[in-house]
């Protein structure tokens, strides 16, 4: 096992990608998913639904309006983003780690013409797919609650995609560092849960104390919520472009790290 400090070695090198084979890696994971989705979809899907009920209808009774919206209208679009975030991060931490460290699936793949970079990009692709899928399923639920006010709401697939790429990258970075399953607890407690609670889903980030109000700006979830909410409610204006650009840049900047780190972790 290499020291974690060496995992970034050669990060600037051009990755060895064959996109056709990357798709085959993605397809392998999809095939497994299609066998187990009935059990899985409930797990990822019920939780935001419970939040929607508990907060939207329970807590919402005591909240008259936020920025001119009912609490349900404010909350529901944000939960689309968090649903995608949780689905991607669970997949690319626990499940990717299982494939990588326990089942040695990555090792089996790279004994074929597939390269390790193909495998990692395939994992990112799959994590992104799951985020977009669960986000979209929750979007349909939100539509059933009558919260979707514009046909342009379908454009949320773009921020969902970008955000899921970023979370795939971040999760895979953590997975490459993780010595065991227990360490993922830190990832969720220190990074994911705070984003979920303070990223602008449950209350506007302007209500955070002045000293830390800038923090959400550094999180992908905040920018996704800030684009998804106006798109769903039919209130999109040019200000969402800035959030889009943030998501695009973050997706590109974070991409080389999981490729390099997983490669260095496994190939010695």
């Amino acid at each position: 096992m290499p020291k974690n400090s060496n995992l970034l070695q050669g990060w600037y090198k051009r990755p060895d990608i064959d996109f056709g084979l990357t798709v085959k890696v993605f397809y392998r994971n999809l095939k497994v998913f299609l066998k187990t989705w009935k059990a899985n979809i409930m797990f990822n899907f019920l939780e935001p639904l419970l939040y929607l009920w508990a907060m939207g209808f329970g807590l919402g009774m005591y909240v008259s309006q936020i920025n001119g919206l009912s609490y349900l209208e404010f909350l529901a679009p944000g939960l689309i983003a968090s649903s995608a975030m949780f689905s991607t991060t669970y997949e690319v931490t626990y499940n990717s780690y299982t494939r990588m460290a326990r089942e040695k699936i990555f090792h089996g793949m790279v004994a074929t013409p597939v390269s390790m970079d193909d495998v990692v990009l395939g994992e990112i692709l799959y994590g992104t797919f799951k985020g977009v899928l669960y986000g979209f399923v929750f979007f349909i639920v939100v539509a059933l609650f009558g919260v979707v006010h514009s046909p342009f709401a379908i454009l949320i697939l773009i921020p969902l995609f970008l955000m899921s790429v970023i979370f795939s990258n971040l999760s895979l970075i953590w997975t490459s560092l993780a010595p065991n399953y227990d360490s993922f607890g830190y990832f969720f407690t220190l990074l994911i849960s705070p984003m979920f609670l303070f990223g602008g889903i449950f209350f506007p980030v302007e209500n955070l104390p002045a000293g830390i109000r800038f923090l959400p700006w550094f999180t992908p979830l905040y920018h996704a919520v800030e684009t998804i909410r106006p798109l769903v409610l039919g209130q999109a204006d040019p200000s969402i472009v800035g959030h889009f650009i943030w998501l695009i840049i973050a997706a590109i900047i974070t991409l080389p790290f999981p490729l390099t780190m997983v490669r260095n972790k496994l190939i010695q």
Binding site: L21, K24, R28, K31, V32, T36, E103, I105, G108, P113
Partner: peptide, 28 residues
């Protein structure tokens, strides 16, 4: 090449036939 590694690295959730078919994919 054909490689048989020391530890089995089959796809545990897939069937025997699916394992072969999925692996064939990697060889196009």
């Amino acid at each position: 090449l054909g490689v048989v590694a020391q530890e089995d690295n089959l796809d545990p959730e897939l069937t025997v036939l699916e394992n072969l078919m999925v692996y064939a994919n990697y060889f196009r």
